[in-house]
Amino acid sequence: MGIQEQYRTDAANLLDSGAVKLVIGYGEGSTPERRRPIFIRSAEEVGRLVLDANCIANLSAYLVPEGLLSDGKSVAVFLKPDGIRSVNILAAEAQLNPEQVVILGFNIDAGLANPLPGRKANEFAPLLASLKSAGLSTDLQREADRLEQMTAVERFEYWKEQFSKCIKCYACRQVCPMCYCRRCIVDVNQPQWVNTSSHTLGNFEWNIIRAYHLAGRCVACGGCDRACPVNIPLRLLNHRMSKEALDTFDHFAGESADQKPVLATFRQDDPETFIL
């Protein structure tokens, strides 16, 4: 049995037994390559679930809307390792109870979706530890290296060009599992803390706020980057922040559900090289 058939059967069993009230997965999209998030509530509908190498979106953001998990019931969700890390962070930040999240885990390797053993986030700990020891990388490594070589002025110019394209549609925020604030700081308007204008300064304000709030929290799912309708390479910013968190604090975001949020905790042996 292929993984798609296997997971359809698993989803049907989870729903039939009442173990979960909802399965969040992927369905066919508007083109043969596209996959879209779908929400399955009964075993009769599991035939709509698709699982293949085109299923790249991190669906964990659908777990956090207010009220979904407040009845104590469980939800099953298709997740790649990046999504499992997101669940761990959301648990560590008290946004959900990982016991309520049943994971239908998979990874994509050589154009194929493969099952990952485990059902609850903590069962994937060995896998996540191996990802941490493999180190951070980005598919934009050459661009990341090029940015590192630049002077601060050149780098500022680079981001100025990129941010000048921003239209403040906030797709990067909305698609991100880590952006769960009920009211984002840019939407706080009594008074308006951050200007709403999408001019160069306003775009800098937004993109820097977004990047900083993700420091030590981004799992590199690439959702923001794919969602951006004006093609700003946001994953380069996120990657740089993740590298800083790993190198300085040995922090690999979402390694476990009891990991302490790196910027909200203090350890006596924290390096303080940045304090003058």
Binding site: P37, Y62, I167, Y170, A171, R173, Q174, V175, A227, P229
Partner: peptide, 13 residues
């Protein structure tokens, strides 16, 4: 609209 994430990209484009 279940899967809509509430961004403004469709309106701004």
């Amino acid at each position: 609209s279940q899967r809509c994430i509430g961004c403004g990209s469709c309106t701004f484009l």
